[in-house]
Design a binder for these strands. Sequence first.
DNA 1: GTCTATACGATGATAGAC
DNA 2: GTCTATCATCGTATAGAC
Lengths: 195, 195
Amino acid sequence: MARKPGSRSEITGPRVRAAALRLFARHGYAAVSMRQIAAEVGVQAGALYLYTPDKQSLLFDLMATHMRELLDAHAALTHCPSAVKRLEQFTRFHIRHHAARADEVFVSYMELRNLEPQNFRAIESMRRTYEDRLEAILRHGMDEGTLKVPDTKLATLALIAMLTGVNTWYREGGRLSLATVEEVYWNMARRAVGA
Amino acid sequence: MARKPGSRSEITGPRVRAAALRLFARHGYAAVSMRQIAAEVGVQAGALYLYTPDKQSLLFDLMATHMRELLDAHAALTHCPSAVKRLEQFTRFHIRHHAARADEVFVSYMELRNLEPQNFRAIESMRRTYEDRLEAILRHGMDEGTLKVPDTKLATLALIAMLTGVNTWYREGGRLSLATVEEVYWNMARRAVGA
DNA sequence: GTCTATACGATGATAGAC
DNA sequence: GTCTATCATCGTATAGAC
């Protein structure tokens, strides 16, 4: 096992998180050992504890970072006045942002049940914030009269489920370009909410 | 620890599967130990191996049974001639069938990555069969001219993701009855595919 | 059919050398 | 900053008594 006598502190931390993300996504949080993560990084298991207090914090860190980046990236979008335009913007943003972060999305959805209660509540709250932003768009559209859904909460959940579903099959370099996927899904989403 | 000196062979097997399903759904396959399952059933860990060759077979059994029941139940539906009617039937069937089997659905989706390759292929094949039945309906509607989607494969995946998403939030006795949920989702599904 | 006992490796996490 | 060594615990699975 090659020694790394120099210093890597600024670089090893991110590598630990990257390895954990990759392994958690592939095999699941519970199935991955700290030794496996260490091996992937090229250090011994004990060294990981210089970068995380424990395994649970590692998971929470990954999920919280992902959710914060999602909320920040969405908040940075230019604000359109029309509800339909905003819905199109949301749709395309959601697909593009999620497609570029397959592992993060997968872990953030699949490992919710492995979060300790306090951590679970924190992630849930961020996810709820994101959903509320979509629901606000739908409500705005209802007020404008440009959208028509039987129930804004259900439509929100239905749309997000549909859009996030892209991640279960989309792979870069597949049959369809991401631009085409965006187009097809926006077409279906638009009609589903009566726009 | 209470002894069970009598015989329970016909009853203990189903109880083992029920306990495993419940625990796998709550905590995940990898996070659940055979000892936990045994404790839930009220036997010792070693006794479980009278009912399953190993833990992996237990998981595969649960998933394969769920998929077979899904395919059988869907195949038993009366055959409607019109594509739109068949789509409505599929939509309502999917929501109703899945809502009544929350744990099975959750495990069958979340634990795919914990299946050994051979078992994974078997489950994937059944899932694909189910998807193909929906796609056949959409293609039929395209031929009839009663449905209009940009891509039948993508529409299939989008619809299934949307419908299965109900399971992430629906709870019996909640704000909405299942009949209402069916109604709302059929409304959105119908419009999404241009019916 | 279920129990107790056990094999034996892997686990998360810590202590102390360098 | 990383290593080696270690702890106590838990993992799946099996053997043999009753």
